[in-house]
Every structure is written in structure tokens, then in C-alpha cells.
Design a protein around this nucleic acid. Structure first.
Length: 192
DNA sequence: TGCGCGATTCTC
DNA sequence: AGAATCGCGCAT
């Protein structure tokens, strides 16, 4: 519960009543951010007059130099540079040659970490989510903000007892220790 | 310049 | 259970 890291969004009249999560929200412990992203609102502008808002229901944390499940574990490269950058930026990369995966960078500059947004209400699966929201490489390394067309609003986080915690998906290659870290968070997935 | 490998999803 | 599909990272 590290303080209120939200701030009112003051730009462009049509968003005046919403609350956009700022970089300070993402500058914290990655696992905490992953958990606290549940219930928030992922917002995507698909057209000048059309914004889609989806409640985030599934996330995963990828944290630090030692996390062998994280792409950043191999070191800073062109592909992973964004994870070493400042918090609150989007990390979008192509997975298995056909699916774009959406992450938000966490922690301070120089520390490689991000949270994978795996699913939203009604759109389950990280690849399905980006397809539904028309997210691809063009958003990589851009800042999460209304001006950029993709951002996160405060929404309504679930109660602690409404959150399920478990190991991350699809990271067996990282070995049993890192694959078993309880860094996957879900809520409201009863009708999955 | 070439090759192996995926933070997945869909079909058989 | 297996294919689809391609950019990255490292070896050659």
C-alpha cells in the first residue's frame, strides 16, 4: 500500500473525470505492481472518437537481472532495452512469431523489469488481448498515456481475497525455481 | 549469413 | 499433441 500514486488526468477534456496511472505507480516493486494492476482499466484509443476500456484481470511479473524467465536476463540488447528504461513505458514484442505481447515497464531506469498484461475482462490471453486492441510493435517503447493512445486508469482493484496467485505460464525454460515463482495474479476468472 | 528458440493460440 | 510463423541473439 505504498501511498497514492495516482493523479488526475488534466489533459484533453473528454478524459477529465478519469484517473490515469502515472509513472510513479510503475516505479515500485514489480510483483506489487503486477498485483495492484488487477482491476485497473486498460484504455486503448482505436479511433479519434472511440476509446475501448477493459478491466485488467490477469498479470505476471518479470523482475530483475536474475529472473531467468525474463528476456532481460540475457542482458541489455536492442530487444530488451525498454525493460531497462524508465517506468511507465510499454514493452511490446512478438512472441512465437505471431502474437504481440503487452508489458508495462516497472522499477527505476537501469533495473530491468516489467509486468505482462495477460488478460482483461472478456478478453483472455495475452495474444488475444493485443489482437483485440490492435496493439503491435508501433507501441513498443512509447509511454503509457492518453496522448499515446494506450494507457491505464485507476479502475477498481479487487479485494485481497478476490485475487488468485500462482506460477507464471509458459516459462518452464527458466528452470523449476523461476518457473514456480508465484508471480501470476488473477481475479474474476470464474466464468473463464 | 545462418540457425534455434520462444512470456501463444488454434486445430486435429 | 502439433503446427503456425518470424525477429532476435549468438555462433559461424
Amino acid at each position: 500500500m505504498g501511498g497514492d500514486s495516482r493523479r488526475p488526468y488534466a489533459g484533453g477534456g473528454q478524459c477529465s473525470t478519469s484517473t490515469v496511472l502515472a509513472a510513479s505507480f510503475f516505479a515500485r516493486d514489480t510483483v506489487t505492481v503486477a498485483r495492484e494492476l488487477l482491476g485497473r482499466t486498460l484504455c486503448r484509443r482505436l479511433a479519434p472518437r472511440r476509446v475501448v476500456r477493459l478491466r485488467i484481470v490477469e498479470t505476471e511479473a518479470y523482475d530483475g537481472f536474475d529472473d531467468r524467465a525474463s528476456h532481460a536476463h540475457a542482458g541489455e540488447t536492442a530487444r530488451t532495452a525498454v525493460m531497462y528504461g524508465p517506468p511507465g513505458y510499454w514493452c511490446v514484442y512478438l512472441c512465437y512469431g505471431m502474437h504481440w505481447l503487452l508489458n508495462i515497464v516497472t522499477r527505476e531506469r537501469g533495473y530491468p523489469a516489467a509486468v505482462l498484461i495477460r488478460g482483461c475482462e472478456g478478453v483472455h490471453g495475452p495474444g488475444r488481448l493485443t489482437r483485440a486492441l490492435q496493439i503491435d510493435r508501433n507501441l513498443n517503447r512509447t509511454r503509457a498515456s492518453p496522448a499515446g493512445g494506450l494507457w491505464i486508469e485507476a479502475g477498481t482493484p479487487p479485494r485481497a481475497n478476490e485475487i488468485d496467485i500462482g506460477p507464471r505460464i509458459g516459462v518452464a525454460y527458466a528452470g523449476p525455481y523461476w518457473a514456480s515463482r508465484p508471480w501470476r495474479f488473477r481475479t474474476g476468472h470464474d466464468s473463464e
